[in-house]
């Protein structure tokens, strides 16, 4: 049996694993985005006002704990909890609700999306 035959055989055997590899890749990407979101939450100092599991020094109690925000029905008691609206809220809370104690911190759209990914990945409880 030549080396080429062996290689071919291995490829044929591995073919069914291709979709699995793609899924794993997707999962890894999602994990990376969510991990990036966690770093951003630390960088923007969100923990000064919120408890956020997994984020260093995120023990603030000005606003609510964000441990279970991914499971909540509403954001800020006012908006349906969808990724789009949560990202919008993170970016411009005081534009949406001028009386909100949560400031507009100039978070970019991709940064807000990464934070949302982290929140939705939190299992809560």
């Amino acid at each position: 049996m030549s080396a080429r035959t062996i290689m071919f055989g291995m490829l044929v055997l591995a073919a069914p694993l291709a979709p699995l590899a793609a899924r794993t890749q997707q999962a890894t990407d999602a994990a990376r985005v969510s991990e990036h979101g966690k770093d951003l939450l630390a960088q923007y100092g969100c923990g000064a006002c919120h408890v956020i599991p997994g984020v260093d020094r995120a023990v603030g109690r000005v606003g609510p704990s964000l441990a279970t925000i991914g499971h909540g029905v509403y954001i800020a008691g006012s908006l349906p909890n969808t990724p789009d609206l949560l990202a919008a809220w993170i970016r411009t809370p005081q534009t949406i609700q001028p009386r909100s104690g949560m400031p507009n911190l100039g978070v970019s759209e991709p940064d807000a999306r990464a934070m949302v990914a982290y929140f939705y990945a939190l299992t809560g409880e």
């Binding site: 109690r61 606003g63 609510p64 704990s65 279970t68 909540g72 029905v73 509403y74 009386r99 104690g101």
Partner: peptide, 21 residues
């Protein structure tokens, strides 16, 4: 039940803001 319509009220004496405002 473990409801999530409003926030849990377990830390009210320590909460800085009510309803965020």
């Amino acid at each position: 039940r473990k409801v999530r319509v409003g926030p849990p009220l377990g830390d009210m004496s320590r909460r800085g803001l009510i309803a965020g405002i």
